[in-house]
């Protein structure tokens, strides 16, 4: 059954594995609703891709599982089911399949979908946080304890630094999107993904460091009240740096452009956080980075080994099947 439906993609399985760990922890923190939302997202995401791929006579890529989980875990725990549904259908259909399916999309589908619902339904996706209860299983069963309280990022932006504890942030006991909170798990995932050569360390490092650097500059020049090390553990910057900036399809391939790519993502995030109309800017950062990814690769000096074919789309397709040799 599985063999029939999916094309095998080892690299994607590792990412799915780490995301499942995050999913379990998010369920532990915020209750069973997390599982329900993600299950719905998975079903709809796979179904959407299946409809498109069937028309092309192809199988569903395992990458869609990554897309679904990345998208699902980026939503607040109390997101209405219908909002989650609209976002994932948009993500897979418009973010990925209209470009020709796996390996051809310009933008990261998960982020495309998330930003679509983030902009469309600001009151439903920028709220709906749940206070973590441990164990959250029972009390947060149906997510009754809706809280419109501030997330750590909100506290930091208002200068209420004392409301944010370092260890709380580190272990993820705070309000936020389902998968973004557990700093320690995301760090472990990063180590695992880099060690297995699934994710490119340069992308993670450049995204994270450029954000940290810019936030530090803003903090010490008095332009921002957010304490840099806490700000980097709040919001979704870490989640995005590890899981989104490393997407081999929508990101650049050359070392030089990978550094610049991370700089765009990190820089945009911090600029929007501090001066924009939205509380968090990571999604915008990724989309902007995606926009420039191919251009950056194009501008970098040509590698010595072989000339790039003129046509872009086909040349990118085999990239993920190279088993992360150069993700």
């Amino acid at each position: 059954m599985i063999e029939k439906l999916f094309q095998k993609q080892q690299i994607m399985r590792r990412v799915v594995g780490t995301l499942l760990v995050l999913l379990v922890f998010a369920t532990y923190l915020y209750g069973w609703r997390v599982l329900a939302v993600n299950a719905l997202v998975l079903v709809l995401g796979i179904a959407t891709e299946w409809i498109f791929e069937r028309a092309r006579g192809k199988k569903v890529s395992e990458a869609v599982l990554v897309t679904c989980l990345l998208y699902g875990l980026a939503l607040p725990p109390l997101v209405p089911f219908w909002v989650a549904a609209i976002g994932i259908i948009f993500a897979v259909a418009i973010g990925k399949e209209v470009f020709g399916g796996f390996g051809r999309n310009i933008f990261n589908p998960a982020i495309t979908g998330r930003l679509f619902v983030y902009i469309s339904f600001p009151t439903l996706t920028q709220r709906g946080w749940v206070e973590p209860r441990v164990p959250g299983f029972v009390r947060n069963l149906f997510g009754i304890d809706a809280l419109t309280g501030a997330t750590p990022l909100g506290f930091l932006a208002d200068g209420a630094t004392e409301s944010v504890g370092f260890w709380q942030l580190f272990f993820g006991f705070r309000m936020g999107s389902m998968g973004e909170s557990a700093v320690w798990l995301i760090l472990l995932a990063a180590v695992y993904l880099i060690a297995t050569r699934t994710a490119q360390w340069r992308l993670i490092a450049s995204t994270f460091l450029s954000a940290l650097l810019l936030q530090t500059v803003f903090y010490f020049t008095g332009l921002s009240e957010m304490v840099p090390h806490l700000a980097m553990m709040s919001g979704s910057i870490l989640y995005v740096a590890v899981f989104m900036s490393t997407d081999p399809v929508s990101g650049p391939n050359k070392p030089g452009s990978q550094w610049l790519y991370g700089l765009i993502i990190g820089g945009t995030t911090i600029l929007i956080r501090n001066f924009g109309g939205f509380p968090e800017g990571t999604s915008f950062g990724i989309l902007l980075g995606n926009t420039f990814a191919s251009l950056l690769d194009e501008l970098m000096p040509k590698p010595k080994r072989k000339k790039k074919p003129a046509k872009k789309a086909p040349s990118r397709e085999p990239a993920p099947s190279r088993e992360g040799a150069k993700a």
């Binding site: 418009i94 209209v98 679509f116 902009i119 469309s120 339904f121 600001p122 009151t123 439903l124």
Partner: peptide, 22 residues
């Protein structure tokens, strides 16, 4: 019904137009 803010903004016309062309 919860209005979709993005539909009010120009980008939505961009992909709607794409879908119509398709």
């Amino acid at each position: 019904f919860v209005p979709w803010t993005i539909m009010v903004m120009p980008p939505s016309a961009f992909f709607l137009l794409g879908i119509i062309i398709w």
